[in-house]
Design a protein around this nucleic acid. Structure first.
Length: 424
RNA sequence: GUGGCCGUAGCUCAAUGGCAGAGCCCCGGAUUGUGAUUCCGGUUGUUGCGGGUUCGAGUCCCGUCGGCCACCCCA
């Protein structure tokens, strides 16, 4: 195959079944976010490169940008994350919205990195942010939104875990240990972030350079119980969601702008990349607006790639997804034209059913009835409506129950109106 | 970006250095008013691409592109 005919590495074609799968995921995201009273927003796919050069993003993301110079000599980049965009939007119009501001977006993002399991160069992400409320209740609400989003796919507390940590507790600990400088604290957190990945000697060496010891760090992780966690647990317990959350101070996250609560969602069974991550960024808006807008905020991102892999791997979530995809691709009714001389009447039936909101398919040409029933079956239709010699009556066949009855023309609209519309 | 494994039909895969195959899918028929399961027939192709070794390469070698995995980091 000629190279130009292939999609670029890390980019996906969405054939109808892939599109149905994608819509299942994004539709579920949207439904749950709206159920929490969040409003959908979006921003440009292409942004000025400077938006990511400022200190708000982590350093690593700069090296992963799809960037180029446009025809107007502007340096631009495809967005690698939503937070800088939503921060700009919030700073521009923070005063127009009652607080707390609860916004979500579902959008494609781009990162130039070598693709592998769970990582592509273009991916979708749900971003949810709650702005203008620094209370633990706001933290709990965001965690509940994240958990409910996962639950909506059929995931349980046995499948996934939200590992919760607190950068504030870490900063207190570091200050207590004599790490006062902010740059040093950030350096220490990046070492702590690698606690499970690097050999002990390397960690010891890096920590001692900062005036810390590995044993003190490990003791803190083991025994510290930040006060906020009890409130969080209580709040989630009231919703029956406490089993999803665990305190795990090993989570610190790479991005520089996080200030307090941070969290990541993991598969409990397999070692997999994080499904979602987020945290509190109470100073970001102030920093970016030079103090003009000073609002606390908490948010998270949930990507479609690792989540999709997990949903495929678990039998229960896979079956649920397959059913949703089949339903999304099916039509409600297939009209069988059993007698070509009744095609005019059949088209009238099709037109009426569609006007009543049903999805309807039918043969464009004079196919044999057997062929039409095969097509009806393949279309996923629950019902076949046979228009033929008995007109103005029709035969109505329930393709699932394999039963058949008569349907007079005058009853058609009532019947169509009585059909159950499956939940989206 | 660095390293390892892999690349055969639309899909899943087979073929000791010796005639490129099977199943699924798709198309047609058995069946001119009844679909899940049957039976028959048909198209699957520059073996990712380019070079090399060889009488002969899907198979061995080199390069390249693509995929998977690890590192890095993260959704």
């Amino acid at each position: 195959m000629p190279g130009r005919m292939q999609s670029l590495p890390g980019f996906r074609d969405f054939f109808p079944s892939d599109c149905a799968r994608r819509n299942y995921i994004t539709g579920t995201w949207r439904r749950v976010a709206r159920s929490f009273g969040f409003a959908e927003y979006d921003g440009p796919t292409l942004e000025p490169l400077d938006l990511y050069r400022k200190k708000n993003s982590g350093g690593e993301i700069l090296g992963q940008l799809f960037s180029f110079t446009d025809r107007g000599e502007r340096e631009v980049a495809l967005r690698p994350e939503m937070t800088p965009t939503v921060a700009r939007m919030l700073i521009a119009k923070a005063r127009e919205y009652r607080k707390p501001i609860k916004w979500f977006s579902i959008a494609p993002f781009f990162r130039y990195e070598k693709q592998q399991s769970g990582r592509l160069r273009e991916f979708l992400q749900l971003n949810c942010d709650l702005v203008g409320d620094a209370s633990p209740a706001a933290d709990a609400e965001m965690l509940a939104l994240l958990i409910e989003t996962m639950r909506a796919f059929g995931l349980t507390a046995e499948d996934i875990v939200v590992r919760v940590s607190d950068r504030g507790a870490w900063m207190d600990f570091l200050a207590q240990q004599g790490v006062k400088d902010e740059a040093q604290a950030r350096e220490a957190l990046s070492v702590i972030d690698k606690l499970e990945r690097e050999p002990r000697e390397t960690l010891e060496k890096k920590l001692s350079a900062l005036g810390l010891t590995l044993s003190a760090v490990e003791e803190f992780i083991k025994s510290a119980r930040p006060a906020f966690f009890e409130k969080l647990s209580g709040n989630l317990e009231a919703r029956g969601l406490e089993d999803f959350c665990e305190l795990d101070l090993r989570i610190v996250r790479g991005l520089a702008y996080y200030t307090g609560l941070v969290f990541e969602v993991f598969d409990r069974r397999q070692s997999r990349r994080a499904l979602a991550g987020g945290g509190r960024f109470d100073r970001l808006l102030s920093d970016l607006s030079d103090g003009k807008v000073d609002l606390p905020a908490i948010g998270f991102g949930l990507g479609d790639v690792v989540l999709g892999d997990l949903l495929e791997d678990l039998p229960a979530t896979k079956a649920r997804m397959a059913a949703a995809i089949a339903a999304a691709q099916a039509v409600d009714i297939y009209v069988v034209v059993a007698d070509e001389s009744r095609r005019t009447e059949a088209l009238g039936v099709v037109q009426l059913l569609r006007a009543l909101g049903r999805s309807v398919d039918y043969p464009l040409g004079a196919d044999k009835v057997g062929r039409q029933f095969k097509d009806a079956d393949a279309s996923g239709a629950r019902y076949a409506l046979v228009v033929g010699a008995e007109w103005p009556a029709m035969k109505l066949k329930d393709l699932k129950a394999r039963t058949e009855s008569d349907l007079p023309q005058e009853s058609l609209a009532d019947w169509a109106g009585s059909l159950q519309t499956p939940a989206p």
